Computed example of a mutant assay.
Amino acid sequence: MKILMIGEFSGFYKNLKKGFELQGHDVILMASGDGWKRIEGADILIDSNWPYFLGKIHKRIQIIFSLIKLSRFDVALIVNPNIGLSLISKLFSFILKLKSKKIILSACGTDLEYLKYGEQNKFDYWPYDVNKPKLSKIIHKNILDSVNFIIPTFYDYAEPWRQSIYSKNVLTTIPLPIDTDSIKPFFPKDEGKIIFFHGLNREDFKGTRYIENALLNIEKEFNHEIEVVIDGKMPLNVYLELVKKVDVVLDQCKVYSFASMNSLYSMSLGKVIMSGYREECKKEYNIESELPGVLHIEPSVEQIESQLRYIIKNKHKLRSWGKINRQYVENFHDVKTIASRYITLFEKNSIC
């Protein structure tokens, strides 16, 4: 099967591409590297040194000209429906339909349906209680009119799409993939201080002020037992080297589902993680086994502090929890497993 992938989401498409290729499929990834994360692996790199707004337009034009040069694909996957200006989005949709038999939207980033759902107060809490982005309804419609199916990656994105006018096009949620074969685990150590880490990236979105305040309060209380590292906005390879040295990774506290790419990288490295882990997430992913190394946190300093104290009290269990996390991602998020689920879904819905 010939597969075209456009965009990136913290390494999602890079890892999924690897899974498809291991299945014997011909894959082209067109991506920018996801900004300062500098994610490698794109076959066609979309980049620009132009100033902010002009740079965005320049990259959209690069996508269109690159599409024109490519042959026809069986299926195209795109990460985000917000492609440039109205005219550019229409042109993009037109050319993509000419070049692909079927077009699939990966519902995994901020889009109009997600924002509408949150604005209607249907989440108990969500990342955009402040600094909500403005997205174009026209561009959204231009892109969605060309999309055949939508495949969510989290409950947080799946439910808004299931409640939208595009609900009939929403397929089964498939979790994000991670190439576990390429990642050696570094499990929490048995001795010394527990090292907690929170990565700075979209601080309002991830709830950094709650996490940071909780960490600093606990550090004062247990200063001889823990170490706190708060850092971020670094290339992915540098970030992963840092994660190797810590024991517990606090990802984000304003979401329902834990399995972001950041959490999956951390779990693959054998780390304990703290993120959203609500019942909705367990049901969406059909999680039946216990995951003691995934601790649920919410946008509440007191609730996060309570979970941090629980970890400190159970320091002797961190290594075994890290091993359970590693085994979980090997079983349910490995690139080969996830790619197989996509191919099965394609076949079931006559996409290939």
Rank of each mutant, 00 (worst) to 15 (best):
V229N: 07
T208S: 13
Q252A: 04
V255K: 01
S268P: 00
L250H: 14
Q252S: 00
V248W: 14
E219C: 01
K206V: 00
H198E: 07
V249Y: 15
N286H: 08
Y265A: 07
E227L: 13
S182F: 11
A259V: 10
E225T: 02
E221C: 03
E241V: 04
N286T: 01
G270Q: 02
L171R: 15
K244A: 00
K189G: 12
I178K: 04
M261K: 02
H224D: 15
I174C: 03
L236C: 09
I183M: 08
E219P: 11
E279Q: 12
V228C: 13
E219Q: 15
F258V: 00
S275A: 14
A259T: 08
E203S: 12
K193F: 01
S266N: 09
I273Q: 12
S260L: 03
K184A: 15
T173F: 10
M234D: 13
L236M: 15
E280F: 04
K206F: 03
I273A: 08
V229A: 07
V255D: 05
D251R: 02
E221W: 06
K233A: 09
K271C: 08
N223L: 11
Y285N: 06
V272K: 02
N237W: 03
L240I: 04
T180S: 14
C281R: 00
N237S: 15
M267G: 12
V238D: 11
T208H: 15
V228H: 06
K220E: 13
G207S: 10
G207A: 01
F222D: 00
F186A: 05
C281T: 02
D181W: 06
K206G: 08
I183P: 14
Y265W: 14
K283T: 13
P177F: 07
D204I: 05
E225N: 10
L269W: 06
N201G: 05
C281S: 13
Q252K: 00
L264A: 11
S260E: 04
V255N: 01
K282L: 11
K220L: 09
T180P: 09
I183L: 06
K233G: 02
L215G: 06
G232I: 01
I226R: 02
H224S: 13
K245P: 08
L176V: 00
I174H: 06
D251G: 00
P177C: 06
L236Y: 07
V249N: 02
G232S: 03
M267A: 07
K189A: 10
A259G: 09
R209A: 02
Y265L: 09
M267E: 05
D231T: 09
N237L: 11
N223F: 15
L171K: 15
L269Y: 14
F258Q: 11
M274P: 08
L250S: 11
K189F: 13
R209T: 12
T173W: 08
I230H: 05
L240H: 01
A214G: 11
L215T: 11
N286V: 01
I194R: 00
N223Q: 13
D190M: 14
V248G: 08
S257L: 03
Y256A: 04
P235I: 09
S266I: 11
E219T: 01
P185H: 05
M274T: 02
I178M: 12
V229Y: 04
F186Y: 08
N201M: 12
I211L: 10
N286L: 07
A259Q: 14
Y265P: 07
I273V: 13
L236W: 06
I178P: 03
A259R: 09
